[in-house]
Design a protein around this nucleic acid. Structure first.
Length: 427
RNA sequence: GCAGAGGUGGCGGAGUGGUCUAACGCGCACGGCUGGAAACCGUGUUUCCUUCGGGAAGCGGGGGUUCGAAUCCCUCCCUCUGCGCCA
């Protein structure tokens, strides 16, 4: 969330940002927050004055008591004060709740380089890598292909768990493990610490990291428990340091999280997303960084580079887009997506999302940096997919499929597949 | 899951209704002393509000009793020890 001090000192910067987003509803919130905050501080001062008075009388009572004098009249006087304090505090709490409600929902201030645009159609392509080729033969949708090849079983997954789940079978499951191993090695070599996080976290922790609307639309809640299945390992990693102060010489902290991810909302359906592309459960290696503010923009580029290197090693053609103001969401200050080439559809599809969240998550989670001189300030947090295996699998299946139904395994992965150069095909 | 013991500042640790809401020790920062350093001495070391004089809050979280709560009550969370269960 935004720091209240920003709204006190420079509400115009918040307004200007909302205008870039085209979010008229929230423009009114800025004014409301500023007004309610002024009111809140007035009430706060009033209740502090009352507390001061109460403390004074209480001290007098104690003095009289020690001197063995009569305290009755003073106690009678004192009794009136807590009633008043309660009244004023009820108002104070109400105002604070409303301020926090709005503050939690106001989006992050975007970086000036974020392109202005209404929706995802106005995201800006920054670069392309590899040659996007159309198949030379009639290629089946990947879901149908995998089912027929015996490499996945969606029908039985539906029987057991419903739509949006998969059984990966045999060599495809092996390929999934190979991708995972490759990505882990890649990041660990670069000094990232491998993290296996809890797959369920509490609401309080969750509120540190995510857009609040996600609780309704994305997250699975465990019945009868204050626990939510994580939608990405970004969430447990991001909330890991909540309410902590990190010494500046420990930064940046670089994590490579590995986890299953669970999502209720799986969005649009169609032959090309049915299968393993849009699912309720998938696996992902995620990069996460806690950094000093002055380092975060450099590290944002580093995260993107790491993810690009992985896709280059897998020989998958892709492009990088800069997400525009209308599509960026509430948390990120700047976001890149990597979109992999999907030959059957002849389109680039999102496989990586790389964000600098600046202080937005750190303010919510109360995550601070302690400078050498003792000063404190909020940390910056960044996250980026390294690779989501299900999405990478589809890209591999489509980009490296031969007419006879075999799938060529990228060289970088063969080592992790006992040297196999192909999977699938006629037995 | 059951029983017992606990949760205090950056760390260790005292305090079980009012003698500043935090003793004492360690660490860290700044200042003094020094040619420089150690030792030593002093100040500071949470959050919020402020008309910058101060003020308020804070002892795991939330709620309650009281003129007054780290201290009493309720509730939740967590840690340790033992038992149980389990991969």
């Amino acid at each position: 969330m935004l720091d209240i001090n920003l709204l006190r000192e420079n509400p115009k910067s918040v307004l200007d940002d909302l205008r870039k987003r085209g979010d008229e509803e929230k423009e009114a919130w800025v004014d409301e927050v500023v007004k309610k905050d002024e009111e809140y501080r007035k009430f706060l001062q009033e209740s502090q004055q009352l507390r001061k008075k109460r403390n004074e009388i209480t001290a007098e009572i104690d003095k009289l008591r020690r001197e063995k004098k009569d305290t009755k009249t003073k106690i009678e006087e004192a009794k009136k004060i807590p009633v008043k304090i309660k009244e004023i505090e009820a108002e104070t709490v109400k105002l604070k709740e409303r301020i926090d409600f709005l503050l939690m929902r106001l989006p992050n201030i975007m970086h000036e380089s974020v392109p202005v645009g209404e929706d995802d159609s106005e995201n800006v392509e920054l670069k392309k890598w590899g040659k996007p080729l159309k198949p030379k033969f009639k290629m089946k949708p990947h879901g149908e292909f995998l089912q027929e090849a015996g490499l996945a079983d969606f029908e039985r997954a539906a029987k057991v768990s419903g739509a949006g789940f998969y059984f990966l079978m045999g060599d495809l499951a092996l390929l999934e493990q190979a991708i995972t191993q490759f990505a882990i090695r890649h990041l660990v070599k670069k000094g990232y610490t491998l993290v296996e996080p809890p797959l369920m976290i509490r609401r309080e922790a969750y509120e540190t990291v995510t857009d609040l609307d996600d609780f309704e639309s994305v997250m699975y809640k465990i019945e009868g428990e204050d626990l939510y299945l994580i939608a990405t390992s970004e969430h447990p990693m991001g909330s890991m340091y909540m309410n902590e102060i990190i010494d500046e010489d420990k930064l940046p902290i670089k994590f490579a999280g590995i986890s299953s991810c669970f999502r209720k909302e799986i969005g649009a359906h169609g032959v090309d997303t049915r299968g393993i592309f849009r699912v309720h459960q998938f696996n992902k290696i995620e990069q996460f960084i806690f950094s000093k503010p002055e380092d975060s923009w450099r590290l944002h580029e580093e995260l993107l580079k790491n993810a690009e290197e992985i896709f280059q090693a897998l020989e998958i053609p892709y492009r990088v887009v800069s997400i525009c103001t209308g599509d960026i969401g509430t948390v990120a200050a700047k976001k890149y997506d990597i979109e992999a080439w999907m030959p059957r559809e002849g389109e680039y599809k999102e496989v990586v999302s790389c964000s600098n969240c600046t202080t937005y998550q750190a303010v919510r989670g109360n995550i601070k940096i302690r400078r050498k001189n003792g000063d404190k300030e909020h940390a910056h947090t960044l996250n980026s997919t390294a690779i989501a295996t299900s999405r990478a699998l589809r890209a591999i299946i489509e980009n490296f499929q031969e007419e006879d139904g075999r799938i060529r395994i990228p060289k970088a992965l063969q080592h992790y597949m006992d040297g196999k150069e192909f999977i699938g095909g006629k037995k």
